[in-house]
């Protein structure tokens, strides 16, 4: 907290020069993880991917019960069928991904040098479809969530390894995601950090606010509130509406860069997807 106060004072003195004081992504990632490891010293590092279940014993017990036979099992099975089916032109999803798409979700989002943009798994799946003459899928739930659930299940437990290549465009995308994460918006004037950094671990009525570290590691999620499996894009748009900010387009760079920033912060933590949440 002291550092933030000091930073606040510095702001009045040299606002224009502020941009220069941001450290490198790697340094920021170290600070980010250390902040949460210190804020929740009793939480095992890998447990951060389980969000509220790492912080609330009662919820954890119910989660363990549900994990015996999780309802997202249907998503995984449906996703596997969709993933394995060949496209009309004979190709398949496997042809669009490294290692035939098996055990690779820990590398996403991935910066694509050709387009100069961040490719989340959802964007990559839709890109694969359009390249093979198919309509892109709805990026919030349904088949997209099921395919992602299957792909994530093949990476279960692998450590996140999101890379920011030595390319100014990649760094710019990372900074854009970072800016979005810390920018207050909507009539409620909250940023993602308001709830998931300052408010991490607190209750919002019966919800426990998950720490930002590991926040996106268990997507796609089967939420009891949704009654089906949903993607990270769906959750981003839902959070926007909850602070009364009009959401961006699902396939916008805004959300891809935000996912890029958050996933980079998860590096080293295990893939927790598909996950289950209240």
């Amino acid at each position: 907290m002291r550092r933030i106060l000091l930073a606040g004072i510095a702001l009045c003195v040299a606002a224009p020069a502020l941009a220069a004081t941001l450290s490198s992504p790697a340094a920021e990632q170290k600070a980010f993880q250390t902040y949460f490891f210190n804020k929740f010293p009793t939480v095992a590092h890998d447990d951060f991917v389980n969000g509220p279940y790492a912080l609330d014993a009662g919820m954890r017990a119910q989660w363990k019960d549900i994990l015996q036979f999780p309802p997202y099992q249907f998503s995984i099975d449906n996703g596997k069928a969709l993933f394995s089916a060949a496209f009309p032109n004979g190709h398949g999803y496997g042809d669009c991904f490294a290692n035939k798409g098996i055990g690779i979700t820990q590398n996403y989002p991935m910066f694509d040098a050709k387009s100069g943009k961040v490719m989340t798994l959802e964007l990559a799946i839709n890109k694969c479809r359009t390249e093979n003459g198919l309509k892109p899928l709805d990026m919030s739930a349904g088949d997209m969530a099921d395919i992602e659930a299957y792909m994530a299940s093949t990476s279960d437990g692998k450590a996140f390894a999101v890379k920011i290549p030595n390319d100014p465009r990649a760094l710019a995308d990372y900074r854009a995601g970072e800016a979005y994460f810390y920018t207050r918006r909507g009539q409620l004037n909250f940023s993602c950090a308001s709830c998931h950094v300052q408010g991490a671990g607190d209750h919002l009525r019966s919800d426990v606010l998950a720490p930002a570290l590991g926040l996106t590691a268990s997507f796609p999620l089967y939420r009891s509130a949704w009654g089906n499996t949903g993607t990270l894009t769906r959750r981003f748009m839902e959070c926007n509406v909850q602070v009364r900010a009009v959401p961006a387009k699902p396939d916008s760079d805004t959300y891809a860069n935000l996912a890029y920033f958050l996933a980079y912060m998860n590096n080293g933590l295990p893939v927790g997807g598909p996950g289950e949440r209240p």
Partner: peptide, 14 residues
């Protein structure tokens, strides 16, 4: 049964 249900739609009971 949980003291506080994480979500009223899915309450595990044994």
């Amino acid at each position: 049964a949980p003291d506080i249900a994480e979500n009223g739609a899915v309450v595990p009971v044994s």
